[in-house]
Design a protein around this nucleic acid. Sequence first.
DNA 1: CGTATGCTCAAACGATCGTTTGAATCCTTC
DNA 2: GAAGGATTCAAACGATCGTTTGAGCATACG
Lengths: 208, 208
Amino acid sequence: MTLPVNRTGSTKERILGAAETLFAQRGFDGASLRQLTSAAGVNLAAVNYHFGSKEKLVEQVFRRRLDTLNAQRLAALAKVAGQPDTRLEDVLDAFIRPALELSHEDEGSLFMRVLARAFAEHDDGLRKFLSENYGHVMRQFTAEFARLLPRLSKEELYWRIDLATGALTHAMSGFGIIQRKSDVSERAHREQTVQHLIRFAAAGLNAS
Amino acid sequence: MTLPVNRTGSTKERILGAAETLFAQRGFDGASLRQLTSAAGVNLAAVNYHFGSKEKLVEQVFRRRLDTLNAQRLAALAKVAGQPDTRLEDVLDAFIRPALELSHEDEGSLFMRVLARAFAEHDDGLRKFLSENYGHVMRQFTAEFARLLPRLSKEELYWRIDLATGALTHAMSGFGIIQRKSDVSERAHREQTVQHLIRFAAAGLNAS
DNA sequence: CGTATGCTCAAACGATCGTTTGAATCCTTC
DNA sequence: GAAGGATTCAAACGATCGTTTGAGCATACG
């Protein structure tokens, strides 16, 4: 079980990169600091020196990606929110496309797998951290969905948003995307994937 | 962090029950055998005596629920599969309803949370176990979906089934159901939930 | 009654965990 | 080039992990 050793970038960056990979593969508990620092090519004590603790390292792994991801999502949402001619598909595009681009930056959608693990965790600390730091993003998207789907009751709207985000998280993190990555060029494939996800989610949100 | 101690049933059953609860709450790695046997009110060594190892205990936790769950799913599918007047919603009902009934048997949808964790895990051993033992169920449902959605290409069909199962797993395991469990009676609420899930999934599978 | 057989128990095994320590080394700044 | 803060290092800390052991207890059968 020897892993390739990363030798590029600062110690902090190497730790964050190795952490993302190993958290995606083995989970937050399953990946030990010894495996992690070994894969990063740094000393074991470097994690506690630079991040304070393993738990704070987990938070930084999320921060590094989510800060820019959610900024891109909100920027894309701002272009269509409140406009009279905005379609449901435009809002979904604003939500999905930045995540898909991120998935194609880091090979294997590693961060999206980490995020899917976070959803599966019912650990209160992690959920609280994510909710406090990034809950406003989902709230803004929900408001726009509510505007475009006025016939849905509040309860129905929440149900469908919950189902849609579940579908998207699963698809972007899971076996799916990697499997289908082979025969199409990167850019064309990404566009095709975006359209797949948008079509499915829009139909679900709009149902009957 | 003291947990209630179960004092009913055989040692094996008490271990399985406590394992389901703790695996749902803290994950397979996060829940230790000492926490587990303590919550079950049995001796630490009982796990290895009755199950052989922690890993085999995990498999038995899945077996106990999935055997009946998938039997019910296949029985319900058999009633509608191949029939000329079968609707997409009927097949989804066969898939969803048994899982929902299971979710309401064990309080808090504990097993569905365990299942969601299994999907998030990219551990090869667990995935292989689930695929080998229960892969035929998903294959039968896929075949029936293919019959009812002939205009979809194979790739599009797989995409949408993947998205639909992601949505359903997320909804049945996550915060969603528990949150909405309050104001409606058990039976009425379950029926309403089934209809929510079916509407969303049918619309997504049928999209454009 | 004696003795298997199935099960439970406290105790310990070696391994690995996250974290801490204090010295060694690097790098900047005067 | 000396001083000093930042960083890296090997080593060890106590805690907890899954698993094993062997004695003790139970119930059933000859």
